[in-house]
Design a protein around this nucleic acid. Sequence first.
DNA 1: AACCAGGACTCTG
DNA 2: CAGAGTCCTGGT
Length: 300
Amino acid sequence: MIINASIDLELTQNSGQTSQPPWKKTNDSYSDLVYINNNPAIFNVMQSGKNIDFSYTGNVTEDAAVEKLKEIYDLDFDLNKFYRYLDSYDELKDMAKFCNGLRLFQAKDPFECVISSICSANNSIKRWTKSISDMKVKWGRNFNNHYSFPDVKIFNDLYLDDEEELFETNANKNNNLKACGVGYRAPYMRKASEIFTVEMDLSDIPKMSYDEAFETILEVPGVGPKVADCILLYGFGFRQAFPSDVWIKRIVSHLYFDGKDIKVEKVREFGMDEFGEYAGYVQLYMFHYARKSGLMERLK
DNA sequence: AACCAGGACTCTG
DNA sequence: CAGAGTCCTGGT
């Protein structure tokens, strides 16, 4: 069925948002395993003009499936209104045309988003997406050749590296976190999953204010300000988050501060004050505008 | 083959 | 409290 909402699927899938790695691509369609009230379904999406051609299999109602699809691709977000907003500022004018149809790519699973975001720190998109995909194949549930992200309980029992694995058991090898190429982030990830079993419940986050959620998620090992904002934006839809890293710093500094070197922390405050509810989207569009327009090369 | 990029954390002053 | 050094891996 055609879902009437403009989006560029290719762009959105490959925009490096830390909710999840890109979905499995077969010919022109992307598919993945999605759970709706614990019922597995395979979602399949394809570009159809400006819209999405959506199909699914699984024991869920069409209404529930479409609703979930809208959540994941943020289809209720009014892109045209956002483009009018961008057009009204000299600094942001050019961005829409370089990123037309780019939308938030939101988490299917908040825990997957947390681990993906921790994994993305000090890392490349290519590398963290491969790590997460490897984890899914190793420890996720298999449903019609698609894999879920392993849940907290499973994650809790994982070994960190070959040594630990060998010491604990003489069974498999390469069945540990470091074998997924996460390096020194492995202990952060395991500690994080421990926290979610004993003292923090991810389902509480949506009930909090942005500030409270930010402070809470910062407590998780391996989560600093940038990663916290990624989790809040891509995992929980807090649009006022403005994830700030070196690239956003360079871009903001170039556009608004005459190239002056400013602290990443100041960039975050500036973005939140300046863009309000659009902060998350502006950050997304800035980054891709810089990539596609050649600005990134010039800022290096 | 030696270097570099990328955030969070830890240690130092 | 700010600034510097370190962590791992894939890429040049």
